[in-house]
Design a protein around this nucleic acid. Sequence first.
DNA 1: GCTTGACATTGACGTGACGTCAACGTTTAG
DNA 2: CTAAACGTTGACGTCACGTCAATGTCAAGC
Lengths: 252, 252
Amino acid sequence: MDWSIQDIARLAGTTSRTLRHYGEVGLLVPSRIGSNGYRYYDEQALVRLQRVLMLRDLGLGIPTIAEVLAGHRDNAEALLAHLHWLQQEKERLDRQIASVETTIQKMEGGEQLMAEEMLNGFDHTEYKAEVEQRWGTKAYADSNSWWSSMSKADQVTWMHRQKQLAADWQAAAAAGEDPRGTAALALAQRQADWLGSIPGTPGATAGRPTKEYFVGLGDMYVADERFAANYGGVKGATFVRDAMRAYAESHL
Amino acid sequence: MDWSIQDIARLAGTTSRTLRHYGEVGLLVPSRIGSNGYRYYDEQALVRLQRVLMLRDLGLGIPTIAEVLAGHRDNAEALLAHLHWLQQEKERLDRQIASVETTIQKMEGGEQLMAEEMLNGFDHTEYKAEVEQRWGTKAYADSNSWWSSMSKADQVTWMHRQKQLAADWQAAAAAGEDPRGTAALALAQRQADWLGSIPGTPGATAGRPTKEYFVGLGDMYVADERFAANYGGVKGATFVRDAMRAYAESHL
DNA sequence: GCTTGACATTGACGTGACGTCAACGTTTAG
DNA sequence: CTAAACGTTGACGTCACGTCAATGTCAAGC
């Protein structure tokens, strides 16, 4: 008693293509092949097929199914291993779902600009890559975790201080102040205080940035237009850099 | 200011292969290509790459990422659709986990064994390989063909006898019986009768197993946790072994 | 015997996002 | 000058089939 490929496919609730595939990979070969090349399957094959489909529904892959059916592997063991993998996958999904949800929330809150452009990317925390390249991964991580751990309100307050400082810099530059004058020096002092309060800043443990870091930062403000933009373009940034350098020479 | 392919790869935390792939599919083309064919990327490309990786981490596919970045698709909409898909996947996983868990439970509880594993492989017929290795291919073949030739109803009846015997063993062990006591001896007698009625068992022609086989079987019950499980774990199996050994000494 | 429709075959491509050689040219540091 | 490091293109592999394409076979009705 045997059936054609379509017959068992329907009997077992699968497709003929799947059966051919199982034949190819040796998971379930036809019990007989006609002279015309047709595949025929008997009841043994049907039973095996049903087991295969059961295991497949449990999510096992073809190699695992083959092992289990061959008895080379304990059923319970295989299923436990598979269960473990399933649970890990679920955890991964949970994390991803959480990520996507918070991302959507941020966007819907209308604070997208706030959150994305301003809060999460200002000044030296804006460009993870550069910061890491210049001062190492740890510096970025420290600074980033510090920032992330702040409340939104604190972040906004902080942003205001930074914006105010940048505005004062611009004003001083526009007024034609002397980068080595007392006004500029005061601004540089504020800048140093500001930086020194950020964990991750080289020298932050001492409350103020290291001389090298401070000078290098000033150079970067000029060299990189994205940073320069914060201080009114290259011209403003140049003023800031010079002032910072002067301050560093005398106070760091 | 531009970087080589390895540079941005490291900066952004990905691989050069991925960047080439993004170039191929048009998701992120190099900002410049040298006369030597080298790919170079500038800051714009870096920013775009960082966005791509962000969206990728959220689980979006390349086509979706491309659409979002091209602005042809609303970010929130895309993320919501993706979220929906993620949740469906999670549900699917949950169902599969539940399936696998119940399957394992059934197997452990011995219920499913009735339908699938028990009828086709219980006790010493369950592990073809071991049986063949220990007592020869013929022993297995005999026992197996005998089992296969039984009607399903007879198999079920047989299974009940075996299950009952196993349960009685467990009860006796749990009750703290003496493995050399009369109760244990009676159980061992039933066990011997049971084995003796199975063709293929060494000594079966005499209606009872050989002493060596009987003792060896008891040892195996303890040594192999898969068999021990039939008698309530190693502790129960140890009781069974001791009782079988005592019986073998005096009656075989 | 012929047509028709259902069913069969093998072969090959597509899927998703890259990993991983292979074979070979280019840049850079010592 | 050489070796190491880095670059290129091209192509195959992944996983379990779905989906054509081109073609042969069977059963039934005329």
